[in-house]
């Protein structure tokens, strides 16, 4: 554990709490992509199957349970409790274009050819693109509630912080790198660059998040 990794995980935790806070206080899931949230559940479930086989630490176990449970709860809020506030007609990204290639990549790139390891690879590839339906929705509507942008910023910060974490680990753990996680992580972070640009130049200056027409 190093400071970048810890801050990254806390940022990830914060992003989920911000999203829950947004849904509960506005009593609405307007502006949130159900597809992205459903992809995150898929990511967490396929990646964390090892909670039954490998004990890493209490920290690791607790975070995994929290990520699975909280994201399932968000799906429940969107699909049941605040269903009328979710508009599927603007959440139109075709997730099969993500699931198919990620499954193929996982079959090609993995560390061991076992069910658990291939699913782990799948989850890494899928996480790297799971935000696309959300970003696509943002692009379509051209604007976002400020709290939604804070959610995305925290999520992006989590990914960005994993990069110095890997660099730190490379130098402190005798040249160890995880090529699958690093490659997918770089792609994932790159997807946030456009968003970050608008976030830093507008939202943090007190303006509304609006994309140029």
């Amino acid at each position: 554990m190093n400071i970048f990794r810890l801050l990254g995980d806390l940022s990830h935790l914060a992003s989920i709490l911000i999203l829950l806070h947004k849904i509960q206080t506005t009593r609405s899931c307007r502006g949130i992509s159900f597809k992205t949230q459903a992809l995150y559940v898929t990511v967490f479930v396929t990646r964390y199957l090892d909670i039954f086989t490998d004990w890493v630490s209490l920290y690791n176990f607790t975070m995994k349970i929290f990520f699975i449970a909280s994201t399932c709860y968000i799906l429940y809020l969107m699909k049941m409790k605040y269903r009328p506030t979710h508009d599927p007609s603007i959440d139109t990204f075709r997730v099969e274009y993500l699931l198919g290639p990620c499954a193929l990549l996982a079959l090609l790139f993995h560390y061991r050819f076992t069910v658990l390891e291939v699913l782990w690879s799948f989850s890494i590839f899928l996480e790297s693109v799971a935000i696309l339906p959300q970003l696509f929705m943002l692009q379509r509507t051209g604007e976002a509630e400020t709290i939604t942008t804070h959610y995305l910023a925290a999520l992006g910060a989590y990914r960005a912080l994993y990069i110095p974490n890997w660099i730190y680990r490379y130098f402190t753990e005798s040249g160890q790198i995880d090529p699958i996680a690093v490659t997918a992580g770089l792609v994932q972070t790159a997807l946030y660059l456009d968003f970050f640009y608008v976030y830093f130049t507008k939202v943090l200056q007190g303006q509304k998040f609006e994309l140029p027409a």
Partner: peptide, 10 residues
């Protein structure tokens, strides 16, 4: 040996 990939990250 690929035991370096212990998946200790979230």
């Amino acid at each position: 040996d690929d035991s370096g990939h212990g998946h200790d990250e979230l």
